[in-house]
Nucleic acid binder design. Structure first.
Lengths: 171, 171
DNA sequence: TCATACTTTCAATATATTCTGAAAGTATGA
DNA sequence: TCATACTTTCAGAATATATTGAAAGTATGA
């Protein structure tokens, strides 16, 4: 493999890792994901361990997390016992899956907690300002939830193109 | 203050903190932000320190970060020397500011890095698959950047209502 | 059923991030 | 200018998070 391509792959893997850690995702999980995205063939655990210099346990945990997120699939190659892994290659599908998971894991619990805040605050004059602010925030989070839900709805996403058309028309 | 309201505020502050740490934001920064959002009056550093049981240095650093993000303002109260802090109260404005900052700090550097990957990969047959995938990802990230840019453009946001109308029509 | 070839788990360890608090810095008004 | 009343900084300490690797678990096919 050419030097340039090697460097480019390395940059790709570490860029994805850096980005992920700014968004609350484990850096190694993102590096594994990036490695699989950058690789045409499916990779075995041993290949992944070697490429990223990580332990078997670490690789196993992060591959499990990535399959839970629906970003990576296990595949069998020929008659081999060993399992191989490959990433979802369609970037829009990938985006949908991430949207779906973060909605479920993070946004929905926040909605529940904010609703609980409103209930707890009671209905006195004293808590009026707090209730108002909490209610506005709740509305905002619900809107975000709705948008993410739409984004996550379709595999071949039909929503984005239309949103983009609208946004571009507003320029 | 009623017990219920006290509990509700505490829940509000810790919910915001938990959520933030899942999104790559310092938990204390988010708790300070939540405290100010939940409070009608502007608060002094000492009040914030007491409410969250944090040190002066920690409070100072996080207030600085919040003002850099444009989420919190310093205000003077009467003729006092001491400074007070209050949060942006409009949740849509808040959302715009966050979008603007994350676009600038995180999305734009990733676009640069992906462009560099494409350049480094060269144009041989060997790197074709890698280039294709990187280019698709770059397009996705650019789209996200564009959408965030639109969202961040206006103070009183005119974009969201129209996007929502479109999405609701697609239900 | 058993030996084999693999995967997963988790306690101990390493690493990264955040927090503290005292010292340094800064602005105000007398 | 100086004393004062505050704010900021940053090295070291505390805490939280991620990683290792050996032991336990599991599936396969002979």
């Amino acid at each position: 493999m050419s030097e340039g391509l090697k460097k480019a792959r390395t940059r790709f893997v570490s860029t994805w890792g850096e980005m992920a850690s700014q968004w609350g995702i484990n850096k190694t999980m993102a590096r594994v994901h990036a490695l699989l995205m950058a690789s045409d063939a499916a990779l075995s655990v041993d290949e992944i361990m070697a490429a990223l210099s990580i332990s078997r346990g670490n690789a196993s945990m992060n591959l499990r997390a990535l399959t839970d997120w629906g970003l990576v699939r296990r595949v069998s190659v020929g008659s081999e016992r060993r399992e191989y892994f490959q990433s979802e290659k369609d970037v829009w599908n990938m985006c949908c899956r991430i949207a779906r998971e973060r909605k479920k894991r993070e946004i929905e619990p926040v909605i529940g907690a904010l609703e609980e805040c409103l209930r707890e605050a009671g209905d006195g004059k004293e808590s009026e300002a707090f209730r108002k602010r909490t209610a506005e925030l709740l509305e905002l989070v619900r809107t975000l939830d709705f948008v993410l839900g739409k984004l996550a709805q379709q595999e071949k996403n039909a929503v984005m193109p239309r949103v983009l058309t609208l946004l571009k028309a507003m320029s």
